[in-house]
Design a protein around this nucleic acid. Structure first.
Lengths: 212, 212
DNA sequence: GGTGAATGTGAATTCACATTCACCTTTGGG
DNA sequence: CCCAAAGGTGAATGTGAATTCACATTCACC
């Protein structure tokens, strides 16, 4: 039934091709994503895009979907680790890698366009954020159950704190056009935050906090 | 709104009036700040704005300046406190109050327009950020000198961590149009972060970490 | 070979916006 | 009292953008 010939596949891949082009262009800001630029990138004329998407918003939604999938995929990877702390560290490293590769991430995150009331992407962004926090919370909760992570604080709060420790460096790195050591800062933040996560262990163990 | 044709108001107050109007309108996004909307808000016709500002960018710069001053003023207030921790707490409470009052804050912070390469505001924003981190670092350093705050981590790193703990909640609150308990989350983050700041004391004192 | 749906094209339309300009109105200082 | 300049006005211009539409082309299938 789906083997209707190559033209159907053509549409599918066209859509993906367009979405990828839009994502690429979004590296220069959401507003840089114009119908004519996208069409040029895929070797078409502006109006041709409307054969594959109802309108520009649909294109943006598709582009966002690509990004969302990549970011959430990191969660699954992190969840594979036996040790929660290892999983979390693995997560932020991958997270940063995606941010580095797809420069559109901060442009979408820090876009007032998308934050606007009419933007069809805003609910998707909120949903994706919730999914991410939910996923991180699961990992945190697992660590709490196994005693690796303090349990005097809700897992969700810890997740938000964890994400937040990445957000400001990412923002600064973004605003400064790379003139900011993103990895270095997040790594140092992580070292401090790991202590925070395992603070309940400090009392019973050697005062290794001065091991710096 | 104001009656059109109310005549004569010297340029100085006109400029401030215009900047304030722009700031107010910016609550709906930077892109909502159009020449005609601003002019309407101050009871003029679009072209009249050009008597007071060379172009729209200058208006935006003026509006940003207002915001910048208010945000940095919080630093001085915080620096007055004897105890660094008290000062920091005072700071974030005021900071959140400003964010609440001027809804344009996140719209400017998270604006792809301003983040764009050509924006004349971006360097101002970066500078303002640096000033803020610098100011917080001073407070942190003072606390380190007096032994209130751990000194195994550079004051600057602590400042970035501190700001970051506010940024994600602010962002979520912004994206969710207020459907997110900003104060509550930052308060809880702060309680955890305060422990982090004073972690060096935990070893020598009673294991009061479970005082929750 | 013919057909129709999918796909592509270029021109035209519409719209919101910033900016300019020629002209008008008020007002304070000589 | 006058007039120059500060402040204000409406119309006009130019721009970049999304979207529509009539028309052309491709191609799987009958």
């Amino acid at each position: 039934m789906q083997e209707r010939g190559t033209w159907r596949m053509d549409t599918e891949s066209r859509q993906e091709q367009i979405a990828r082009a839009a994502l690429k262009i979004a590296e220069n800001g959401i507003r840089a994503v114009t119908v004519s630029r996208v069409s040029e990138a895929v070797g078409m004329v502006p109006s041709a895009l409307y054969r594959h998407f109802r309108n520009k918003d649909e294109i943006l939604k598709a582009a966002f979907g690509l990004l969302r999938n990549m970011l959430l995929a990191n969660l699954e990877h992190a969840a594979l680790a036996q040790d929660s702390l290892v999983g979390l560290e693995r997560f932020w490293r991958r997270h940063l890698a995606v941010i580095r590769e797809y420069k559109a991430v901060p442009r979408i995150l820090f876009s007032d366009d998308i934050a606007s009331d009419q933007s069809p992407i805003r609910p998707l962004l909120v949903q994706g954020q919730d999914d991410m926090i939910q996923g991180l919370s699961s990992i945190m909760a697992l660590g709490q159950k196994s005693g690796t992570i303090r349990n005097d604080v809700p897992a969700r709060d810890l997740s938000i704190l964890f994400l937040g420790q990445m957000l400001l460096p990412a923002y600064m790195h973004f605003l400064r056009r790379g003139e900011f050591d993103l990895e270095g800062h997040v790594e140092r933040n992580w070292n401090i935050f790991r202590q925070t996560l395992t603070q309940h262990l400090l009392q019973t163990e050697d005062p290794a906090c001065a091991n710096k």
